[in-house]
Design a protein around this nucleic acid. Structure first.
Length: 568
RNA sequence: CGGGGCGUAGCGCAGCCUGGCAGCGCACUUGCUUUGGGAGCAAGAGGUCGCGGGUUCGAAUCCCGCCGCCCCGACCA
């Protein structure tokens, strides 16, 4: 490929609205262009990388027995209404209407298409198990698309669905996919961790997330410094602190004018925030629920939501406080009526003589103690985990890491096959719903994750096997005929060796070409210029290491080939 | 959806407060010089100043409404 004959619009300045490295560099290096929020055009370089990632995914899926098909993006609404996702996904679905007024949508994921497809044509247990996949664009009208390819409203996903007779089969299909995913992410070369994820409010099947490590990642996970514990932040439970023995102080009311937050109370009374007892109020389908945690901790709403699923958990708003007659910011657990469910995190057992609200504006109490002064109906691990918490396995220190979820696999059981009436006839003649699994990989998101993990101050540093091109041949003096001839010879020879090579034959100064080559991140650069030619040599540079070398004209092709073979 | 910010040439920005010729750098075109780490000089081309309305002799600038984009929070490959 010649740069004069393709479309690689590099930018000299950083785009103003790209904050993170992957977004900024993919725009600057001419890989992508934004069309509208969360929707990007893939230019030639991006397309080449996408295809290489896809190829790895495809190979490993097929090697694992999954069969590729292509199902539509434009979908009828009915199956989605049957599973309840038409409503549950809500505004996240791009909804359409056809000319007859029929409701349609763009596919955000495709259980509703795959399950009926299989049910229609593979009605016998003899047809099972089967695993189908596709690589196709997905559409989700995200609340907040951001960071370029990291969270788009249109993104390329590999999605696979397994269908089994029974639970044992499903687990086996799941295991096969789990191992395929390990091979895929190993081959792609991402630094990643696998965590058993929050079962989520959608039903609670076993599922694992494949998380690419990245400081800008939006997904948090927890791991023990001793390496024996790894979990999704919302699923992680710290080791409970031991109960303390303390001399019980009497409960005393104190004036705390204007101190409606933990921070202000602690400051006014000159105490640590951890000494205060935080009372967070929720409404759960009409029932009032109080959650007690130490003042320096946060309540995990997700954990609470999971506890009450399928009921809907909603934090109290001002109207709720008014209706219940609670003084917002001054709520204390000693004033709860019997109809309030009082939940507490085990860490509350570890404290005594709490400072908490007095149930009157501008007043708090000190010396509040469990049993004597307030009750707890249920003990549940509900604190948001944080750095420094103790590992539940060995008590080691936990640390919170950031990541980008690039793969997610689920055991769905009959969650979708039931409502969709997707069933087969078993050996005994009985009608049974398929036991399903689903397996997603965000292809375009992997591009972003790769750039996050592989860049420096000059630009992207693609791993060799995923780079848009292996080698760039730079004409340092584009209008010099001998230089051009020699560069063309090397370019052609590399191509003949099956190396993916691009020649920068633009009428640009050498500096521009060097900067662009570093920005785009070709693993190996070969520079042909007057200077070197006079000495009978070309210059080579390995992008990742920055290592420079020279080679004679005769050795140039072999030297570039060798450097490429040794590149990361 | 709540909070914050921004929309002026392809990209990055100034001008707006205090209304009066629409500017700067890069990129682009032509010429000359230059030529191995983002060249110099000269001459050009490129704008519904996000959209609509209002105030005014006059609006990029003031007022009202809308739209778009980015960032922070609750959801997700």
């Amino acid at each position: 490929m010649r740069l004069t004959k393709t479309f690689v619009p590099t930018l000299r300045d950083d785009p103003a609205d790209a904050e993170i490295a992957s977004h900024r560099l993919l725009l600057r290096a001419g890989f992508i262009r934004r069309l509208t929020a969360g929707v990007y055009t893939s230019l030639p370089l991006a397309l080449r990388v996408i295809r290489k990632v896809e190829a790895i995914v495809r190979e490993e899926m097929e090697a694992s027995g999954s069969i590729e098909i292509r199902v539509p993006i434009v979908l009828p609404a009915e199956p989605w209404k049957a599973t309840g996702r038409w409503q549950r996904y809500g505004n996240e679905v791009f909804k359409l209407e056809d000319r007859h007024g029929r409701e349609m949508m763009l596919g955000p994921t495709e259980e509703e298409v795959f399950a009926p497809l299989v049910a229609g044509d593979l009605p016998s247990y003899r047809d099972l198990p089967i695993n189908l996949f596709q690589v196709e664009w997905k559409y989700r009208d995200e609340k907040r698309p951001r960071f370029g390819l990291l969270r788009g409203r249109e993104f390329l996903m590999k999605d696979a669905y397994s269908f089994d007779r029974d639970e044992a089969g499903m687990r086996e299909s799941y295991r096969v996919m789990y191992e395929a995913y390990e091979r895929i992410f190993d081959r792609i070369g991402l630094g990643y961790v696998i965590v058993e994820a929050d079962p989520g409010s959608i039903g609670g099947g076993i599922n694992h997330e494949f998380m690419a490590l990245a400081d800008v990642g939006e997904d948090l996970f927890v791991r023990c410094v001793n390496g024996d514990y790894l979990a999704d932040i919302e699923a992680a439970t710290p080791e409970a602190a031991p109960a303390v023995e303390a001399e019980l102080e009497p409960m005393v009311e104190v004036e705390t004018p204007g101190a409606a937050t933990i921070e202000l109370v602690a400051a006014q009374l000159g105490i640590d925030e951890a000494r205060t007892l935080k009372n967070v109020m929720f409404d759960v389908d009409g029932q009032t629920v109080a959650v007690l945690v130490p003042g320096d901790r946060e309540v995990s709403e997700k954990k609470l939501a999971r506890l009450y699923f399928p009921k809907v958990v909603r934090a109290f708003d001002d109207d709720d406080f008014e209706r219940r007659g609670y003084a917002k910011g001054y709520v204390g657990p000693h004033g709860f009526d019997r109809d309030v469910a009082v939940l507490a995190d085990p860490s509350v057992r570890a404290g005594a003589n709490w400072v908490t609200g007095a149930n009157r504006t501008d007043m708090h109490v000190t010396g509040m103690n469990l049993e004597r002064d307030f009750r707890v109906d249920r003990w549940e691990a509900l604190v948001q985990i944080r750095d420094g918490d103790r590992c539940p396995i060995d008590g080691g220190e936990l640390e919170v890491g950031r990541s980008i979820v690039v793969g997610h696999i689920y055991q769905l059981s009959t969650e979708y096959s039931d409502p969709l009436r997707a069933s087969f006839q078993d050996e005994d003649g009985s009608e049974k719903p398929y036991m399903m699994g689903c397996y997603g990989i965000g292809i375009t998101r992997i591009l972003a994750a790769l750039v996050e993990q592989n860049h420096d101050g000059e630009g992207i540093v693609w791993p060799r096997h995923l780079a848009p091109f292996d080698v760039v041949v730079i004409l340092a003096n584009a209008d010099d005929e001998p230089v051009r001839t020699e560069a063309e010879r090397i370019y052609a020879a590399l191509g003949q060796r099956g190396i993916e090579v691009v020649i920068d034959d633009r009428e640009e100064r050498a500096g521009v070409k060097f900067a662009d080559a570093d920005l785009i991140g070709y693993p190996v650069q070969v520079t042909v210029g007057k200077r070197g030619l006079a000495a009978g040599t070309v210059d080579l540079k390995v992008r990742a290491s920055g290592e420079r070398s020279t080679a004679t004209l005769e050795d140039a092709v072999q030297a570039a080939t060798d450097l490429l073979a040794g590149a990361p």
